[in-house]
Design a protein around this nucleic acid. Structure first.
Length: 822
RNA sequence: GCCCGAGUGGCGGAAUAGGCAGACGCAGCGGACUUAAAAUCCGCCGCCUUCGCAGGCGUGCCGGUUCGACUCCGGCCUCGGGCACCA
């Protein structure tokens, strides 16, 4: 190999060799501890971006370091290949989504290989291939059998731009998570997964996830939104019917002065039918329905209501209170009906003020009286029950329990738990996704496609316009079929599944990717799962990470997996930004990884990305910084080349060393300790800086008159091995140039000798009254007495101590002396 | 509004258990090598005062605890993120 570092030649050479020798292939091996290292698989948009490079560089360091540390690792990759962009490309450029997707995969696979990532390519998974989506359909059928997949008519989110419905999790602040369009509400019959059945477990098991960032757990906790309270029945005046409300504040029941229904509440029509309120109620409902989710749920918006002419009876005091429709009451939460307590709920308070409804105080803070006419806002704090009959004087905290018990005894209420989490709407009116394996028969109704007929193949001949409903609905050959049950004429479901289903179990498929009898083999999954380290973006804090947890729990209940949580440890990487803003085409600040790899090589790109910032933080891109990393690799290259001959004929005797030799050895062993610890805590930036310091020390040592070949070899070997997870190509080249024949990937991770890692000399810091006055080099094993003596031998210290009383002396052994003087 | 997270040189960042603030890198400055430049190697590099020795100040702001605080406590400011009529 040439004297100069030629990144292109080196990287191409080793990528080829690794592939030929198949060194990243992994197998189950019960004699070794396993480690599952996983990065979120990419959507094959066509080009790798810097966020991918960061994600996969982090994962590769963890994987390579784990492998070298003796773990049997699994480190797979694949493509989340279904999704709307493929259809958009078809519309914009007339390319079939399948061609667009699979061409993109070819390109992205090439780019991933250029990065030198240690993937077991034999485990590659593509969600858009029939041998993967078949099993997604199979799982759908299992969910259906268990009652976890069901169809219902509901008010759902609709993205007008993507022309499809969206799950709640996929609407962010009222906008489509993908395209940012304002979501509309529509009444549609759709397929749902019953994730709410798992709400309690999804919530409780967050406690098992100590290896997750706290903020992700908090986001999921908030999203699930558990609240305890009670159901309370209110009798409709002049009817034998009742309406149930959910409340978290049964203690304020005596303060209910009116009653509110969501405009969509199913009782509304019945209540106003044939009355003078009928027309107005319908109009009010229409007006509210026209609002977007954003308007509807904005807390700032003025509340609107409509009186129905109906009254209900408060079960605790028989008071008759008026029933209104209110736009701030949501049909999707609780029962869609609430009791309004304006004195103790700010929203109800505002509503009461607007419509001139009475306000009745039933909770008062200790030693204070509240006057309803004087109140500027609701009192939501703690206190004691008043105006509440037999409960007067009860502290509010006890009141919640006591009133609920009373309601239960009277048969008009019960304890209740509600969640903010809604069922997962999984239908999509799109083509490029996994067909829902369901047939609608005129006679038999909903009929699941039999397992033996899977997969329901996604037809290729489809016209994609992006308009007018599910594209599959226009493919007659697909739609028209025979009922699997009676053989009569039937129609297929034409919606496809949410692509988040595909990504909810791909990590299981990696364990046995070629299984053709089941989605994954229990044996393989039992060996590899759970994922020990998952790495990806924070944007999936609720979406993908919640859905995957749900899937894992269902599969656990089915006996298909033995773990209740899929991801033991989670690392959420920060964004890559440039000039202070997220890289985006519209801002014109995108840096293309291909350009960087071409100019400096993958090793430089990886090293820079890992060095510039800790993985969880934002990473500010810097072209100068990249050059610095490139300079460093060249520096490594040269110091190894310069010492190649010396190292190759090194003799192993490391006794009788001079001070410079001992010093370098000590630095080498300290560096091993630092780098090992830093990688373990994902502090890659400091790990790299420690390696840089080692290289600086090696250059200094290089000027010594009598370089010791054995010492130089120890430093060089360890430098190469420690750097190899970060910059695998250059280190592999240098490693082989030194006469080694095994890949660094297969070498053991360096170990340090604690004795050698100790410095012989340390810097003693001397303070007077907490201010540093001198720094003196002393032997590492200096006694406390000698520390004191040495410190008092310093003129600079004496200048601040002489003529004063030494009141106290604090000594931190081997580190610091502090004289307290007056 | 509520809940998180973060504020350290010109810049990215470091300080893992309360003990040297600014490791490492970028930029800058100086030197060596060179006919010269690039590359490379070596050195300097928080601010103020000072020829220097040295001294003072300094981790968003104000206060506290401590022999000693970037680190712990109380209050505030700014920025970023999440949630936001969920009864």
């Amino acid at each position: 190999m040439a004297e100069r570092y030629n990144h292109k030649a080196v990287e191409e050479k080793w990528q080829k060799r690794w592939e030929e020798e198949d060194i990243f292939r992994t197998y189950e091996n019960l004699s070794k501890p396993k480690k599952y290292i996983l990065e979120m698989f990419p959507y094959p948009s066509g080009e790798l971006h810097m966020g991918h490079v960061r994600n996969y560089s982090i994962g590769d360091v963890v994987a390579r370091h784990s492998k070298m540390s003796g773990y049997n690792i699994i480190h797979p990759i694949g493509y989340d290949a279904f999704g709307l962009p493929a259809e958009n490309a078809a519309i914009a450029r007339g390319i079939h989504p399948a061609k667009w997707t699979f061409d993109n995969i070819i390109n992205m696979r090439r780019q991933l290989k250029q990065l030198g990532l240690s993937y077991d390519w034999n485990r590659e998974v593509v969600t858009a291939s029939p041998n993967y989506y078949k099993w997604g359909q199979w799982l759908f059928l299992k969910f259906y059998e268990r009652g976890l997949a069901y169809r219902k008519k509901a008010q759902v989110n609709w993205c007008p731009s993507c022309e499809t419905v969206l799950a709640n999790e996929q609407v962010e602040a009222g906008r489509c998570w993908r395209c940012g369009s304002v979501a509309e509400l529509r009444d549609l019959e759709q397929w749902f997964f019953k994730i709410t059945d798992y709400a309690e477990r999804l919530l409780n098991d967050l406690d098992l996830l100590g290896g997750w960032p706290e903020r992700v757990r908090v986001m999921q906790r908030n999203w699930i939104g558990r609240s305890e309270g009670a159901y309370v029945d209110f009798q409709i005046k002049g009817s034998d019917k009742k309406i149930t409300v959910f409340t978290t504040r049964p203690d304020t029941l005596f303060g209910a002065t009116f009653f509110l229904l969501a405009p969509e509440h199913p009782m509304v029509n019945e209540l106003v039918r044939g009355t003078k309120y009928e027309v107005g109620a319908a109009e009010f409902r229409r007006k509210v329905a026209a609002e977007t989710e954003i308007d509807r749920t904005s807390a700032e918006k003025e509340k609107n209501g409509f009186f129905t002419g109906v009254y209900v009876v408060n079960p605790v005091n028989s008071e008759e209170i008026p029933v209104y429709l209110a736009d701030y009451v949501l049909m999707g939460y609780g029962t869609g009906a609430i009791m309004a307590v304006p004195a103790h709920d700010q929203r109800d308070f505002e509503f009461a003020k607007k419509y001139g409804l009475p306000i009745k105080v039933v909770i008062e803070p200790a030693g204070e009286q509240l006057n309803p006419t004087m109140m500027a806002q609701a009192y939501e704090g703690e206190g004691v029950m008043v105006n509440s009959g037999m409960f007067n004087g009860t502290p509010q905290v006890d009141g919640i329990k006591k009133v609920t018990e009373y309601l239960q005894d009277e048969g008009v209420g019960e304890v209740a738990v509600n969640y903010r989490l809604r069922d997962w709407l999984i239908s999509r009116q799109r083509y490029w996704g996994n067909p829902i394996p369901i047939v609608y028969c005129e006679k038999c109704g909903i009929v699941p496609v039999p397992e033996g007929e899977l997969p329901v193949i996604l037809p290729e001949n489809v016209e994609i316009t992006g308009k007018g409903g599910s594209p599959l609905g226009r493919v007659e050959l697909f739609v028209n079929t025979a009922c699997p049950s009676c053989g009569g004429p039937a129609k297929r479901e034409t919606d496809t599944m949410d692509t988040f289903i595909d990504s909810s179990w791909y990590f299981l498929r990696y364990c046995s990717p070629h299984d053709d009898r089941l989605p994954f083999s229990k044996e393989a999954v039992d060996y590899w799962m759970p994922v020990d380290q998952y790495i990806g973006g924070i944007e999936h804090a609720v979406l993908h990470l919640l859905y995957s947890r749900f899937f894992t729990k269902v599969l656990y209940d089915m006996g298909m997996v033995s773990e209740v949580e899929p991801f033991t440890n989670l690392l959420t990487q920060g964004m890559v930004i440039k000039d202070g803003a997220k890289m985006s085409k519209s801002k014109g600040n995108v840096v293309d990884p291909s350009m960087i790899i071409d100019k400096y090589g993958a090793d430089t790109a990886r090293l820079f990305i890992l060095f510039a910032s800790p993985p969880e933080k934002e990473l500010e891109w810097s072209d100068r910084g990249v050059e610095g990393s490139y300079r460093f690799l060249n520096r490594v290259w040269r110091i190894v080349q310069e010492n190649k001959d010396l190292v190759m004929k090194a003799q192993g005797d490391l006794t009788n060393l001079g001070p410079a030799d001992r010093n370098l050895r000590s630095i080498v062993h300290r560096t091993i300790r630092r780098v090992t610890d830093d990688i373990a805590r994902f502090s890659f930036n400091t790990a790299i800086s420690a390696i840089m310091e080692l290289v600086n020390a090696m250059y200094k040592y290089n000027d010594e008159a009598n370089r010791h070949s054995g010492v130089m070899k120890e430093a060089t070997d360890n430098l190469i091995l420690m750097l190899s997870p970060f910059a695998p190509h250059i280190t592999e080249e240098l490693w082989h140039e030194l006469g080694n024949t095994e890949s660094t990937f297969l070498e053991p991770w360096p170990k340090y000798n604690p004795e050698l890692a100790k410095a012989e000399e340390v810097t003693l810091v001397v303070q007077v009254n907490g201010k540093v006055r001198d720094k003196i080099t002393v032997p590492a094993d200096v006694s406390e007495d000698d520390m004191k003596k040495t410190a008092l031998g310093s003129e600079r210290v004496l200048a601040h101590v002489n003529g004063k009383d030494v009141k106290n002396i604090f000594i931190v052994p081997g580190k610091l002396v502090n004289f307290v003087v007056k």
